[in-house]
Nucleic acid binder design. Structure first.
Lengths: 198, 198
DNA sequence: CACCTAATATGATTTAAGTCATAAAATGCT
DNA sequence: AGCATTTTATGACTTAAATCATATTAGGTG
């Protein structure tokens, strides 16, 4: 979300993570601004019974984990690489200097936060009050529209596992599998050798 | 969140709402920046069966409904007065001019969005994977810490109805009533003639 | 290519929260 | 003060999704 050039000018260093490695943990103090250069990062929580909830998934070019920088609170979730990744990091101080001296970058940042808040609003309402099938479809549509820049009429291949869909919607794998089957029967999704298309 | 003086300088006008009146509806286009001068506003959704979900409640001094201004999307929820209210409104154009010419106001805005994103993250994880009692307690603690500026050791009176708690956590009134009873038995809450204290 | 792990799949059973019905207490209004 | 509405309260019953068990298929790796 911030131009890599700009990040580098403000002293960005690169953090290399293998799939499965942890960047930061829930409860830790935020000291850096992070942006994905390559790979993929998920932010997640675990409830008291060890069930995972995925807050969101961040791909190339996405920044993440800034809210705690702005409000001096600890991280509300963990950040874990779900693919081998390279992350740009700049210190909190440099980050604020950058925003201060680059109003357009600051505005980009604000727009990005607004976007994420929007997604959270939509999903909160879905998760709290809709049936599994509705929730899953909304999630897939969000990924189709916002993550991939594909056209609405084009066929979109869902690159999430059933387990990831479950963890993003607060459901169980079995429920997701059964719901996806049912959505296919209704013609709302396509399954081609186990891959889901929308 | 933006100084009233500044809002007025940028042409703010006042909108008067009686309890229950609607300011804007889900799906509408965002054209104004809003801030509560007095009263209280809730943002909510209704699912397919008519069940309400309250996204958040905004009191005096809070601004709300900005994300759609930044990302050119329709409102993801309705805004309804839950008490007689006076709302300051400035046009989208004035709002952006204001941010552009007042970097500190812009930063305030960003901080505010970060705060709300933080709340949404915490509640999303709660709603999707924790038991009713846990969810309710987290919500109450959030209101105690963030809405009221009360000290953690001070007794805090919860000014939400059981129904509102239900709509904020995605539960049913009956479940909330029973959970609160149970939380009282466990000594985690206090009930004094039907009012909840934490 | 064979093996191991991850992902998908399906049936049977359980259970927690939702639903329904009904009531009593509190609050607000004229 | 009296009536209507809202809020809190409780018991009985239902149900959808979670849980548990187990199997099959696919994908990655040495």
């Amino acid at each position: 979300m911030i131009e890599e050039q700009l990040l580098l000018a403000f002293g960005a260093h690169t953090i290399v993570l293998k799939k499965g490695e942890i960047l930061f943990e829930e409860g830790a103090t935020a000291k850096y601004f992070f942006q994905v250069h390559s790979g993929e990062i998920k932010m997640n929580n675990f409830n008291d019974e060890g069930k995972e909830f995925i807050q969101s998934i961040f791909g190339e070019g996405n920044c993440f984990g800034e809210p705690p920088l702005f409000i001096d609170k600890p991280y509300p979730a963990n950040a874990v690489a779900i693919a081998d990744s390279e992350i740009y990091a700049i210190s909190k101080e440099s980050f604020f200097k950058l925003l201060y001296s680059n109003p357009e970058a600051h505005l980009n940042m604000t727009v990005n936060l607004a976007q994420r808040l929007y997604y959270k609003s939509v999903m909160a309402s879905e998760i709290s009050s809709q049936e599994p099938e509705h929730r899953i479809l909304k999630l897939i549509d969000y990924f189709k529209e916002s993550i991939s820049q594909i056209q609405p009429d084009e066929k979109y291949r869902v690159d999430l596992t059933r387990q990831q869909i479950a963890d993003l919607t607060g459901l169980r794998v079995e429920t997701v599998i059964r719901s996806i089957k049912s959505l296919e029967k209704k013609g709302l999704l396509l399954i081609e050798n186990r891959k889901v298309f929308r």
